[in-house]
Design a binder for these strands. Structure first.
Lengths: 220, 220
DNA sequence: GATAGTTTCATACAACTGTTTGAATTGCAA
DNA sequence: TTGCAATTCAAACAGTTGTATGAAACTATC
């Protein structure tokens, strides 16, 4: 095994370059130059370029998923197996938003990498995202326990909308800042989380079973 | 000028191939083979591959935008310059959703192309999307008129969330169908529109004028 | 210090990419 | 028909890409 020096140098360099310049115009040669290693090292250590990208993405997303589940579990244990829907939603979107938003100048390489992954969606990353369903099912289960009177369909739509707001806000944060002329403060992450959770909660609790029911005020 | 035969044959073939196989693995040679024209024809008629993609996307998105504005204008005229927020939101997300969702087997090439564009987000398309801000501003203006007591910040967030739900649902429709084991019917487009509009309306009308009580300062 | 296994290296490979070129062809007006 | 521009064509170009190779350098074990 020796030391992972070369291997981790590649990972570090690749993540930084992808974060800065996107997937489409970073080549293996750019990466090995940045890492100060030989071109063949990538295929030796990772098998292929796609597997390198996959490893980068998997590492980051299992970190996020672990944090999500940690928050979910803590909330459910505290509530005796049933957590309030707001807290569940916060556990779902909080880690992702916190990991990708915040003041630009202090955004980590990992954060910028995940934003890129969210925007460009290259094949190896798409393949991994498709295997994320089991993870989401755990949240669907928790949401069902929190809102037992709600139909499965409504639960899934609520989950979908919560993820939609979080991911879209990350993807299009620049555009939203420009559109609002800076009025929407995307650096105030906790405010963004609160807004997403608030709307998603309303989506899941308003009216009876019909989504077209009159708006009902929810906790904010 | 002659006839646009070659030019439009390229456009048709390109849109079909991109719709079927995505941007990343369709080459110019694939396109000209499908269109039955010479390789150089693409550069002759469009200048470059990126300009071809851009033309395809622009054509489709101005069609959608025109439909959006048509619905918006109709609604505002009927209401004497002020339309209900639900109708504005419906004009915003309706055309996009109707253009991309619906029974898979009867989805048009244009629809499938726009789904691809939404998922893959290739450079020339991103550039065009960035110029869409003026278009969105018109909706922000209409929303402001519909909800004059609401702050600009809330308006922009509501707009952002409405687009988020629509676009994310399109992008991830397959995953949502799988996650919900088919319980969420993504072919019932009008139901999807109603759900998105409903949630976005709640986001914009719930609570007081101040959904974000300002106890929070810049401190972090 | 020889050996076996791992890792690094320079280099070549093979294929594919979008684009350009310049000649051939076509269509149309005078 | 002639002339001229617009269009089409086959071919080549120029570059890049990820990957494979086989020898060299290293490392640890005996």
């Amino acid at each position: 095994m020796a030391s992972d020096h070369t291997r981790s140098a590649i990972l570090t360099a690749a993540e930084r370059l992808y974060a800065d310049r996107g997937f489409s115009d970073v080549t293996l040669r750019d990466i090995v130059a940045e890492a100060g290693v030989n071109l063949a090292a990538v295929n030796y250590h990772f098998g292929s370029k796609d597997e390198l990208i996959a490893e980068l993405f998997v590492t980051r997303s299992i970190a996020t998923n672990r944090e999500r589940l940690r928050e979910l579990k803590a909330a459910e244990e505290q509530g005796g197996g049933r957590a309030p829907i707001e807290v569940i939603l916060r556990a779902l979107v909080g880690p992702t938003l916190r990991g990708c938003l915040g003041p630009e100048n202090q955004r980590s390489t990992a954060a910028r990498f995940m934003i890129r992954a969210s925007i460009e969606s290259v094949p190896p990353i798409r393949r991994i995202k498709n295997r994320e369903i089991d993870h989401l099912r755990k949240f669907a289960g928790a949401m069902r326990r929190a809102l037992p009177e709600r139909s499965d369909v409504d639960i899934y739509w609520g989950l979908n909308f919560a993820l939609a707001m979080a991911h879209h806000t990350i993807r299009e944060s620049e555009r939203l800042a420009k559109l609002s002329e800076g009025k929407c403060d995307l650096d105030d992450v906790e405010d963004v989380v609160a807004r997403v959770v608030s709307v998603a909660t309303m989506a899941l609790t308003a009216g009876k079973a019909e989504p077209k029911a009159p708006p009902r005020v929810a906790a904010r």
